[in-house]
Simulated assay, not measured.
Amino acid sequence: MDGPVGGPRPRALARAWYAQKRWLYRGGRPHGLARALNDVWGRLYARGWLSLGRGATLQVRGRTTGRTLTLPVVVAEHRGAHYLVSMLGDDAGWVRNVRADDGRATLVAGGRARAVRLVEVPVDDRPEILRRYLDLAPGARPHVPVARTAPLADFRRVAADFPVFRVEERPRQ
């Protein structure tokens, strides 16, 4: 059955979009096109363009190269705190880099860089944050096997698979 104006149904479009997003990150890693798109989005978010106040660029030190790596992220606000979520789970490079560097990172948004410490949130505290993140980050929805409107019990089942980090200010040294 077609949608209201004779085009494809919204669910069919969503399925196609989700399949495309999963293809860009097949194997849990961004491939060539995804890296290029991430670079563009990261630059836009760093300048405060198109981020709607929730996009930022995360800079982390590579655990093997020591080089600064950058990627676009969505910062989810929940109960007065800010959080980053790994839509690709534990194996995402930025997660491993942050863990190896004791949570040190830099967030750039609106042209301002700030040194932060990312503190991993215990699994039991993640479900509400994951739900909030999916509300704000439509690009992450294909990677998280829970509908954003699902009950918290569904988020509890997947919480261990998706690292969540609380953003804290890091004193300048």
Rank of each mutant, 00 (worst) to 15 (best):
W94Y: 15
A113Q: 12
E120H: 05
R112M: 06
P127M: 09
R132E: 13
G110Y: 01
V95D: 03
D125P: 00
E120L: 02
A115R: 15
R126Q: 04
A113K: 08
L130T: 05
V116N: 09
M87S: 15
R131D: 01
R96P: 02
D90N: 13
T106D: 09
V108I: 15
Y83I: 07
V119Y: 10
G111W: 02
D91R: 14
L130Q: 04
R104E: 13
T106R: 13
V123W: 07
L118E: 11
A115L: 13
R126W: 01
W94L: 10
W94K: 01
D125M: 02
D90V: 02
G110T: 08
D124W: 04
R117D: 06
A113H: 06
G111Q: 06
D102E: 13
M87Y: 10
D90S: 12
R131G: 00
A115W: 13
R126I: 11
A92S: 14
V85P: 02
G89K: 01
A92I: 02
V85R: 00
G103W: 10
D90K: 11
A105K: 12
T106V: 15
R104L: 10
E128Y: 00
G103R: 12
A109D: 08
R104D: 14
Y133Q: 07
A109C: 05
G89H: 05
R99C: 05
E120T: 04
R96G: 03
R104I: 02
N97S: 05
V85N: 05
G111P: 09
G89L: 01
L88N: 13
V108Y: 07
R114C: 03
V123I: 14
L107V: 04
L88M: 15
V95H: 00
D102L: 10
L88A: 13
R99Y: 11
R96Q: 14
G89N: 10
R112F: 02
R117N: 04
N97M: 11
L130G: 04
V116A: 11
L107K: 08
L84K: 03
A105G: 09
N97D: 14
L88P: 01
A113D: 11
Y83G: 12
Y133S: 06
D125K: 03
V116W: 03
R126D: 07
R99D: 13
D91V: 03
L107G: 08
D101F: 03
D102I: 01
V85A: 07
D124G: 09
Y83W: 12
G103C: 06
D124A: 14
G111L: 00
